[in-house]
Every structure is written in C-alpha cells, then in structure tokens.
C-alpha cells in the first residue's frame, strides 16, 4: 500500500478539506497566504524584522471575465474600496483579494463559477437583477442572505477580509488600519506598557493552587 501518497500526496482537485484548510483562518494567527509566485516573503521584506511590506498594486489580478467581474464586486462589497467608500480609502480589490483566484493554495478558481452563480441567483431572487447591476447596499444584503443558506460563504468572506485586514497580498489594509507590521520590538517605547501594577492580584505565583 502506498501510504506515502495517501498521507502527503496529491491534493484533490476540489476538496472541501483542502478548501477549508487553506481558506479559513483562526483568530489570532491565521490569515491567507502570500501570493508566492509574485510576492515571496523575501521579495516583500517580510522575512526580516524591521522592514515594511511594500504596497504592490500592480500585482493585483484584474478581472477580465464575467465571472471575475462578479467576484471583484463581491470583494468590493465585503471590503469596499474608493468606488464605494466616501473616504476614498482602498478596499479588498486594492488589497489584491482577487488574487485568491490565482493562488494554488486555494480552490477559488475551481469554485469561481459556482460562487458567482450562487450570488447571482440570490441577487435575482431578491432584486430581480444580476449581482453586478445592484447598488452597494443591495449587494451587501445579497451577501448576508446568501450566507444564511450556504454557511461556507462565511469562510469565503473571511478569506476576502484577510486579504485586506490580514495583509495577505500587500499592505494596503494594514496601512489603512495603522498596523505597522514587522518590527524590531517595542519594548523601549512608552506605549509598550503601563510599567506598573494596574490591578490587584489573587496569587503570589501566577497560578491558582
């Protein structure tokens, strides 16, 4: 029996586990992958403390097909960019969230048509129009309604959010939030700690008996 193949071997073409393994993220740590073919850790400076990941808008995939345009609108709705945000701040599209389609760690490409189709069906049912013809608030309503019937969509939304708020492909979202990213440590800056007891303690050891 070739258990080596079973254990470490080929990734199934479309597999829920592979999808989730790669697409969902945990609270304090996990975010979406770097876009390895275009933005390796070394190239973006993230592998060395003290560097800031550069913004590389040119690395973003541009939507060219109908399906991709629908997904770009999905991204724009989950994290609105300058077209929707009155502040003109960047959003999911500018964070290259559409690069999920090209990331070989994710089956988004394989799911793309199905995903676009689900959203369009929901849009037609709710408003009688395709998703692309809806206003922002209508699109948001469609996404909220769609996840009620298909819980896995929450993972898709998380993946898109992670591109922006987690800085998966570039730093526009991190910059927007004021997150400095890699650093050499904050130990010596005043903001690092109150440097005094701020609460009474129950134990003298740090743990209960």
């Amino acid at each position: 029996m070739d258990h080596a193949k079973q254990v470490k071997g080929e990734r199934p073409a479309i597999d829920r586990r592979a999808f989730l393994y790669n697409a969902c993220i945990w609270s304090a740590g996990a975010v979406m992958a770097g876009f390895a073919t275009r933005l390796s850790g070394d190239e973006c400076g993230f592998s060395s403390p003290g560097f800031t990941r550069p913004v590389l808008p040119n690395a973003c995939i541009q939507a060219t097909t109908e399906t991709e345009r629908t997904l770009a609108l999905l991204v724009e709705t989950v994290v609105p960019g300058p077209e929707t945000d009155p502040d003109g701040a960047p959003g999911g599209v500018e964070s290259c969230a559409l690069n999920l389609l090209a990331d070989d760690y994710y089956p988004f490409r394989a799911y793309a048509e199905g995903l676009a189709s689900i959203i369009n069906v929901q849009a037609q049912g709710d408003f009688g129009k395709p998703f692309a013809d809806l206003a922002y608030k209508q699109r948001l309503g469609v996404l909220v309604a769609a996840q009620e019937s298909l819980p896995i969509l929450r993972m898709v939304y998380r993946a898109i959010r992670s591109a922006f708020y987690g800085g998966a492909y570039n730093g526009v979202g991190l910059t927007y939030l004021g997150y400095p990213g890699p650093n050499l440590g904050y130990r010596h800056i005043p903001e690092a700690s109150f440097r005094r007891a701020v609460c009474k303690e129950l134990t003298t050891t740090g743990w209960m008996s």
Binding site: Y21, I25, G29, A30, A33, G41, F46, Y105, A168, P182
Partner: peptide, 27 residues
Amino acid sequence: FPQDWGFRAQTRLFNAYTSKDYRVFMR
C-alpha cells in the same frame, strides 16, 4: 520565523482544520 501573519508562511508552522459544519476552527 517571519513576522508575517500570512497563511503561506504559517503553513510551515501548523495544520488547520474546520469542523464538518465549518463552525469550529482547530489547529
């Protein structure tokens, strides 16, 4: 250990799974 919360960097560090109903995340 890169200062990077990106998933690709972290796939070297942990395996992650969701429950069958996608509700619980574990690593």
